[in-house]
Simulated scan of single mutants.
Amino acid sequence: MTPFALPGVYAPQGDTDLLVQSLRREPLLPQARVLDLGTGTGAVALAAARLGAKVTAVDISWRAVLNARINAALARLPLRVMRGRLLAPVSGRSFDLVLSNPPYVPSPAADRRRGAARSWNAGHDGRLVLDRICRDVPALLRAGGVLLLVQSALSGPEKTLRLLRAAGLNTQVVEHRRIVFGPILRSRSNWLQSRGLLEDDDEKEELVIIRAERLP
Results as ranks from 00 to 15, higher is better:
residue 119 S to F: 03
residue 155 S to N: 13
residue 143 A to Q: 15
residue 118 R to S: 10
residue 148 L to N: 05
residue 79 L to P: 04
residue 136 D to S: 13
residue 70 I to P: 00
residue 114 R to L: 14
residue 135 R to I: 02
residue 124 H to Q: 07
residue 86 L to V: 02
residue 105 V to L: 15
residue 93 R to T: 10
residue 98 V to D: 02
residue 129 V to D: 01
residue 107 S to E: 06
residue 120 W to P: 00
residue 91 S to H: 06
residue 140 L to I: 02
residue 67 N to E: 07
residue 137 V to W: 00
residue 152 S to H: 04
residue 100 S to H: 04
residue 73 A to Y: 05
residue 60 I to L: 13
residue 144 G to F: 12
residue 125 D to G: 08
residue 78 P to N: 11
residue 129 V to P: 03
residue 105 V to Q: 13
residue 105 V to K: 07
residue 61 S to G: 07
residue 149 L to S: 06
residue 113 R to V: 01
residue 121 N to P: 00
residue 113 R to E: 12
residue 99 L to V: 09
residue 88 A to T: 12
residue 65 V to Q: 03
residue 149 L to Q: 06
residue 129 V to N: 01
residue 93 R to W: 09
residue 107 S to L: 05
residue 89 P to W: 03
residue 133 I to V: 11
residue 96 D to R: 04
residue 135 R to C: 10
residue 78 P to R: 11
residue 74 L to M: 13
residue 132 R to V: 14
residue 65 V to G: 06
residue 150 V to Q: 10
residue 110 A to G: 08
residue 119 S to V: 02
residue 113 R to Q: 14
residue 73 A to R: 11
residue 98 V to L: 10
residue 125 D to Y: 09
residue 117 A to P: 03
residue 68 A to T: 09
residue 72 A to D: 05
residue 131 D to P: 08
residue 116 A to C: 07
residue 63 R to S: 12
residue 92 G to Y: 11
residue 124 H to Y: 02
residue 85 R to D: 15
residue 94 S to Q: 10
residue 61 S to Q: 09
residue 123 G to P: 12
residue 65 V to A: 02
residue 70 I to C: 08
residue 144 G to H: 13
residue 121 N to H: 15
residue 135 R to S: 15
residue 60 I to R: 10
residue 149 L to I: 06
residue 118 R to K: 07
residue 70 I to Y: 04
residue 147 L to N: 04
residue 65 V to W: 01
residue 73 A to D: 03
residue 102 P to L: 04
residue 69 R to F: 01
residue 132 R to M: 12
residue 146 V to N: 07
residue 82 M to D: 00
